Computed example of a mutant assay.
Amino acid sequence: MLQNALPAVGLLVLMVLLAWALQRWKKHLPGAATPAGPTLKVLNAVVVGPQQRLLSVQVGEGPYAQCLVLGVTPGSIQALHRMPMPTPLADAGTPAPTAGASGFGARLAQQLTAHKGQGPHAPL
């Protein structure tokens, strides 16, 4: 019985030692420290059902970055839409205009005068 168990235990010890050595020296192995492929960044996730999600994912960096909308279920991942990432504003020092109460009031008055007399359910 010891004849059969001794090689099995020896093989098990060898596998554990090999796994330990690879963990210890993986930073020295080429290609083992960094994952291959483009960089991925999850931008947003929306739960649609108990096991379904919609994800927007940024793939790549710089001018070649793409945004993917993915449908994720337990059995599959499907690309629903692909679009380039929006470019940043040229002048980031200038703050974007914000609509305050007067801006909203002016816009509302403009819409009301433009559609006066068309009824409450008229399309804007």
Rank of each mutant, 00 (worst) to 15 (best):
M1W: 06
L2S: 10
N4L: 14
N4K: 08
L6W: 13
L6N: 06
P7Y: 06
P7M: 06
P7Q: 07
A8P: 01
V9P: 02
G10T: 12
G10M: 11
L11Q: 14
L12K: 05
V13Q: 08
V13W: 09
V13I: 13
L14K: 05
L14H: 03
L14Q: 10
M15K: 04
M15I: 10
V16A: 15
V16W: 04
V16Q: 09
L17V: 08
L18S: 13
A19Y: 03
A19C: 06
W20A: 15
A21S: 12
A21D: 08
L22M: 12
Q23F: 08
Q23H: 13
W25D: 13
K26F: 11
K27G: 15
K27R: 13
H28S: 14
G31C: 09
G31I: 07
A33K: 12
T34K: 14
T34W: 07
T34L: 11
A36W: 12
G37V: 09
G37Y: 08
P38M: 05
L40M: 09
L40P: 01
L40G: 04
V42H: 03
L43E: 09
N44M: 10
A45V: 15
V46R: 11
V46H: 08
V46A: 10
G49F: 01
P50Q: 10
Q51S: 13
Q51G: 03
Q51W: 04
Q52M: 09
R53W: 15
Q58A: 15
V59S: 03
V59N: 00
G60R: 05
E61C: 01
G62F: 04
Y64T: 12
A65C: 03
Q66F: 03
Q66L: 15
C67G: 01
L68K: 02
V72C: 09
V72T: 02
T73I: 02
P74K: 07
I77M: 13
I77D: 00
I77W: 00
Q78P: 01
L80S: 05
H81I: 00
R82L: 12
M83N: 01
P84D: 06
P84M: 03
P84H: 01
M85Q: 15
M85I: 00
M85G: 00
M85W: 05
P86S: 09
T87R: 10
P88T: 05
P88M: 02
P88D: 07
T94Y: 04
P97Q: 08
G100W: 00
A101H: 07
A101Q: 11
A101I: 06
A101K: 12
S102P: 00
F104K: 02
F104I: 11
F104E: 04
G105V: 00
L108A: 12
A109I: 00
Q110S: 13
Q111I: 14
Q111M: 12
Q111Y: 02
Q111K: 08
Q111R: 10
T113N: 05
A114F: 03
H115N: 13
Q118P: 01
Q118R: 14
P120D: 07
A122K: 07
